[in-house]
Computed example of a mutant assay.
Amino acid sequence: MRLRRLWALVRKEMVQIVRDPSSIVIALVLPVVLLLLFGYGVSLDARHVAVAVVVPEPTQRTASLVTAFANSPYFEVEELRDRRPAEDGLVSGRYRGVVVVADDFDAQASRGLDAPIQVLLDGTDANTARLVKGYAEGVWAKWLGYEARDRGAALAVPVNAETRVWFNEALESRNFLVPGLIAINMTLVGTILTALVVAREWERGTMEAMIATPVGRLELLAGKVIPYFVLGMGGMALSVAIALILFQVPMRGSFWVLTVVSALFLVGALNLGLLISTVAKNQFVAGQIAIVAAFLPAFMLSGFVFEPSSMPLWIEALSHIVAARYFVTCLQTIFMAGDVWSVILPNAGALLLIALVLALVTLKRTRKSLE
């Protein structure tokens, strides 16, 4: 490899980027758009869930129970007197849950007897149903405590659980999802940057001119990777800034660790794009392969939304060849927990190994010929 030729190739790519700003759009604009769409659109939190509270015989005690549900940030409460319209609303999807208070609720509670309430849930969305069930149980437990204190009695609880939440004290799913979104975005951006650019050169015939020069395969690949690596890291920095400033995601780790891990991942993504371009010399085909080979595995198998350990064994094993799985783990650790080396080093090593394998396979597949 001659540095003079390499620098000439890098300058050529930079001039091409300036003349055709689609690469800048992919590297800088696309991550922002995707981060905003996914950051605001994807959430595992259930807030302002519509529920109906059926109280056939209103009393002061039932009114306090309804108020406890209404004061919860998780519920939008509508109080009803009849059970039938509540059930109809549950069937039609108007309510996600129905809380039914018995006719003799106040009388039973006044005599110190069991006065249960019934909670009906819409189980079509199992995750939301579980969340609503947990929220309802929490409201019920707090209300029982308030009632006991009002009577001057102690609530008999055999076990007192004191919960301490580490790393995400506010229990905001956004703090968990946004770092994963950065990995998903950089997977798509890094792969498309090189896959489409090289495919476009084949379509325009400029790649044939490059083949006729004395440029070696390693120089050709490095000349492609370096400019788009700089562009991709710029998109990465912009995504991190949005995560910290706009979404208020905590950053407990070091920026230099984040930079090193991101660089390892981006090198692998760019080499994957180059590998795709050796197979597909058409932009449309290259884009489709990039989505199937990079975006979908990163979205489904990286642990961004779905935990790999909960998947079938063979799918979990397949997820180990997806670089985004290790990058998502590093990002979530750096943002939420800090520089936990027992987590970062093994995953960074896996990213380095994947990047080297992709680089070697791409170099082997690259031929200075029209075939």
Score class of each variant (00 low, 15 high):
A52E: 00
A348Y: 00
E208W: 04
A350P: 14
L80A: 09
V249D: 06
V322P: 01
E78I: 06
L360M: 09
V279P: 12
T278G: 15
L274A: 07
S92T: 03
D45M: 11
R61G: 13
V178H: 04
A348F: 02
V98S: 04
V101E: 02
G205D: 01
L266E: 15
P312N: 07
L44M: 10
V225Y: 08
V361W: 09
I211V: 11
V32M: 14
F255H: 15
V165P: 03
K364E: 14
F38W: 09
T366S: 10
L352Q: 09
E172M: 09
Y135E: 13
L238P: 06
A153W: 12
F335I: 06
V165M: 04
A350I: 12
F69V: 01
F265I: 11
R325E: 00
G303A: 00
R200V: 07
I354M: 12
G93F: 03
V285D: 02
D82G: 11
D82K: 13
N160W: 15
G216Y: 07
G97N: 02
F75V: 02
G39F: 08
L65Q: 03
I226E: 11
L318T: 15
E201V: 12
L121C: 12
F284M: 05
L274D: 14
W166P: 00
V189P: 06
R81S: 14
A129V: 11
W341T: 01
V54A: 10
L275I: 13
V132A: 15
L358H: 08
S277K: 08
A298L: 03
V257W: 01
R83I: 05
L171C: 14
V139N: 02
V305R: 01
R367F: 12
G93C: 05
L36N: 13
L131E: 08
L181A: 15
A294H: 01
Q288L: 07
G235K: 06
V178P: 04
I289G: 01
L181R: 04
P308S: 05
F105V: 04
V18A: 14
A294E: 00
L353M: 15
R4E: 06
I211G: 06
V165L: 06
I184R: 06
F284P: 02
V100W: 04
K368N: 14
F167Y: 06
G134R: 10
P312M: 05
D150Q: 10
K133W: 11
P85Q: 07
L220Q: 07
S64K: 13
S64Q: 14
V322T: 03
V139E: 01
V119E: 09
R96E: 06
E137N: 13
L352S: 14
L370N: 08
M210C: 13
R2A: 12
T128W: 09
L155I: 10
